[in-house]
Design a protein around this nucleic acid. Structure first.
Lengths: 111, 111
DNA sequence: CAAAATACATTGCTATACTATGTATTTTGT
DNA sequence: ACAAAATACATAGTATAGCAATGTATTTTG
């Protein structure tokens, strides 16, 4: 009916939202990139393209919200694990508060 | 602490979200642009720049999600009122469903 | 009577998601 | 045994949307 508009809209909604999701997932334990895509798809039905995630993680690292370390595997390709920094934790708290506000506002509007 | 990042993030979150909010507000009755900015600020603390809203409304009209009509005032500048089209209503239903899903997913992740 | 508010609009900038493409290794299916 | 799929990283180019700045014009307020 308006497929193109909806598809585009969903992608727009992800801007900002994905950063928020990734940081929230990372608050519990360290993950590597590919794992993040799998986990989020498994638990939420949200699809994250690889071309979205890897640049996103690099931005987060540049902003000093996450740290990364390469970890060799006994077999297979080495994995790059990401974890929150202290700055990341503090920033995430502010993001959570902003999100709660937005969510409440939207719920009020939707009724 | 990370002012720039947060400011930028909030603006990114608005991409898509604003479209969703505007359409939801318009489902009840017709509004003119300036009024939308005021109403949303009053009830939700969400700030929408004029340079954001007017292009947004034009996009919605191009996509045939809303209609507009100029209404002359007894005094003052004429106002351009917007209302949902049938396509707009149907699209909004799908957006509501997607949003509900996303919200639930994020709540699960945040705990 | 000047400043602020109301009401529309556009231009240029920036940030981010996504498709496509690439590399390399390991696992799976036949 | 060997091809295909999955795992795991990465980048380049494109499209979209929010926003500051700027503009026009009218009306209200101090």
């Amino acid at each position: 009916m308006n497929e193109v508009f909806l598809t585009n809209w969903k992608s727009q909604v992800k801007k900002g939202t994905l950063t928020f999701i990734i940081l929230n997932v990372l608050k519990d334990k360290k993950y590597y990139g590919y794992e993040l895509i799998e986990q989020i798809r498994k638990f939420t039905e949200i699809e994250i393209a690889e071309g979205t995630l890897y640049p996103l993680l690099n931005r987060l690292k540049t902003e000093n919200l996450v740290d990364s370390e390469w970890i060799e595997q006994e077999t297979g390709i080495p994995r790059k694990y990401y974890r929150l920094t202290n700055t990341g934790i503090k920033t995430l708290l502010q993001m959570n508060s902003y999100w709660k506000n937005l969510e409440t506002a939207i719920q009020k509007i939707i009724q």
